[in-house]
C-alpha cells in the first residue's frame, strides 16, 4: 500500500510573529521551523497502522524551496520511507494542492493524508482541494482512521457530534487532534537514516494562484485587565452585561 502524506513547513508554535516589507511578509529571522503539528499527528497515525498491518510505503510530499528540506527530512527521520519536494514557492492553497495532486497521479498511491490545517495559515483547504483535483472522496477533520483492506473507516468531527464514514481507496483525509495522541519522536537511528532515504525534487506544474497577501496586521492590544473582587462575582456579570455587552 502506498500513501502520500502532505506536510507543511511552519514556524514553531512558540514563535514570536513579526512582519517585514511593509507588513507584507512574515519575518523569518530567528524562526525555528517545524513540521506542522497536525501533519506530524497524521504521520504518527500512519506509522501506527503500518506497524499493525505491514507493507505500507509512506511518501512525504511538500511544496517549497531547498530551505524546507530539513523539515521534510524530519518526516523521514520519524518514519516516512521517501520524500518528494515540489520545487516552488507555495503561493496559495490552490497552487499547493494542485502540485500534490500531480505527485499523486504520478505515483500510484492508494490514498492521501495530511493535517487538517497548517498552523501558520490555518486555512483548512489543501486536503479537500487535492481530492477535488483528483476527483476522489475526501474526509476532513478526521479524529480517527482505521484501514480494513481497501476500505477506510474514518471518524470525522462535525458540529455537535461525530460521523463515522467509510470510504474505498483512493481518498484524501486530513487529521486533527485525536488521530494520534502525541506526535512520534524520531529515534536516533531514524535521524541518522534520514539523509540516506530518497528525497526527490520535482518541478512544479503550472497552476495560477488566485489569492495573495496584501498585508498582515497585529490584533489591537488590549487594555489592562480589570480585576474584580473574588467575593463579588456579581460585579463581573454586571460588567459583562453593561460594559462589555456580551451577556
Amino acid at each position: 500500500m502506498k500513501v502520500l502524506l502532505a506536510v507543511s513547513h511552519v514556524p514553531d508554535t512558540t514563535s514570536k510573529i513579526r512582519f517585514v516589507n511593509k507588513d507584507s511578509e512574515f519575518d523569518k529571522t530567528d524562526i525555528q521551523y517545524i513540521i506542522s503539528p497536525f501533519d506530524e499527528l497524521a504521520l504518527t497515525r500512519l506509522l501506527q497502522i503500518k506497524e499493525q498491518i505491514g507493507g505500507m510505503h509512506i511518501t512525504a510530499v511538500t511544496v517549497g524551496g531547498a530551505d524546507v528540506d530539513p523539515t521534510i527530512r524530519k518526516a523521514l527521520a520519524i518514519g516516512a520511507d521517501d520524500a518528494v519536494r515540489v520545487d516552488a514557492e507555495p503561493t496559495d492553497a490552490l497552487f499547493v494542492a494542485r502540485q500534490i495532486a500531480e505527485v499523486f497521479k504520478n505515483g500510484e498511491f492508494d490514498f492521501v493524508m495530511t493535517g487538517k490545517e497548517s498552523i501558520d495559515f490555518t486555512g483548512n483547504q489543501v486536503g479537500e482541494m487535492v481530492a477535488e483535483f483528483l476527483n476522489i472522496p475526501s474526509v476532513a477533520s478526521a479524529a480517527s482512521l482505521e484501514l480494513n483492506g481497501n476500505i477506510a473507516t474514518i471518524i470525522r468531527e462535525i458540529d455537535g457530534g461525530k460521523e463515522v464514514i467509510e470510504t474505498p481507496m483512493p481518498f484524501v483525509t486530513s487529521g486533527q487532534k485525536g488521530i494520534a495522541k502525541e506526535p512520534r519522536i524520531p529515534n536516533m537511528r531514524g535521524i541518522m537514516m534520514a539523509r540516506k532515504k530518497p528525497l526527490n525534487v520535482v518541478p512544479a506544474v503550472e497552476q495560477a494562484a488566485h489569492t495573495k497577501v496584501v498585508k498582515f496586521t497585529m490584533p489591537e492590544s488590549r487594555g489592562a485587565c480589570k480585576m474584580i473582587d473574588a467575593d463579588n462575582p456579581a460585579e463581573l456579570i454586571r460588567l459583562l452585561h453593561e460594559e462589555a455587552k456580551v451577556l
Binding site: P70, K74, I185, M192, A194, R195
Partner: peptide, 17 residues
Amino acid sequence: SEEHLMIQKAARDFART
C-alpha cells in the same frame, strides 16, 4: 548540523513529554 538539531529537538520533546 541538521541531524544535530533534530537530535536536540527529539531529546527536548522526549524530556518535556
